[in-house]
């Protein structure tokens, strides 16, 4: 029996674990806001019973805060659910705009904590391809993680999904410090396996600071 861990499986677990940790952090933050708001209501209710006047505007503002946090948590959980379901099928139709938006949201805590702003210029038309959504999400996560080490001083990364003759392209721009050597180091075994699983290629333009994923319209050999 081999003790070797499957690099693709390991990469996927690492990605999923990091996203889960980030999501739990976000939910805890949201709960902390709700907890303090509810605590404040409890405080002023007790004081009101002793004769203190209630500030109705403040109460209304607290209600708004709590509703906002419930919506925030609901969105976080919806994103978590979408990520979980991206492992349902080895190949499925994917709207690249939606998938990129999901990845920007899921990575937001990580990127913002490191002082980066990640955005996307979404295509006006639907960009649908048939791919393995989880591997593509994982690949985007890895590229974003790498990209944060090679951006310019503006610390901004923009993702540009576009339709291509053979399928679609996703470009990561703003990587002003990108070098061929660093890009070679990035292409570890797990990245190469991921590219093979997605039937896609990576290309770079160091002068313009761009990494591009070239995706086929349909993957030919879905990973089981």
């Amino acid at each position: 029996m081999s003790n070797r861990i499957d690099p693709l499986g390991e990469a996927g677990l690492e990605f999923y674990s990091k996203v889960s940790a980030s999501i739990s952090h976000e939910i805890k933050n949201s709960l902390a806001v709700i907890n303090e708001s509810a605590g404040y209501l409890e405080d002023v209710t007790l004081m009101a019973k002793k004769g203190m006047n209630l500030d109705m505007d403040r109460l209304q503002s607290l209600a708004g805060t709590m509703l906002k946090q419930v919506q925030r948590t609901n969105t976080i959980i919806k994103n978590m659910n979408r990520l979980a379901h991206s492992l349902d099928d080895p190949a499925s139709q994917v709207d690249l705009n939606a998938l990129i938006e999901l990845m920007i949201n899921l990575s937001e805590r990580t990127t913002v904590t490191r002082g980066f702003k990640v955005s996307a210029a979404f295509s006006d038309t639907a960009l649908t391809i048939t791919t393995h959504p989880f591997f593509l999400e994982n690949l985007i996560w890895l590229i974003l993680d790498f990209a944060m080490n090679v951006t310019g001083d503006a610390k901004t990364i923009e993702l540009l999904p576009v339709k291509a003759e053979s399928g679609a392209r996703i470009s990561f721009t703003g990587l002003e410090k990108l070098t061929a050597s660093e890009f070679n180091d990035f292409q570890t075994e797990r990245v190469r396996l991921m590219l093979a699983a997605l039937n896609c290629t990576l290309q770079t333009d160091e002068n313009k600071g761009i990494i591009t994923i070239n995706l086929p319209e349909t993957i030919t050999q879905p990973v089981q």
């Binding site: 933050n29 902390a32 806001v33 303090e36 708001s37 605590g39 404040y40 405080d43 805060t65």
Partner: peptide, 15 residues
């Protein structure tokens, strides 16, 4: 960095 959390906590401590 969670403004609504930190502002309300400060208010509760003030009470």
């Amino acid at each position: 960095d969670e403004e609504e959390f930190v502002a309300t906590l400060a208010e509760r401590l003030s009470l």
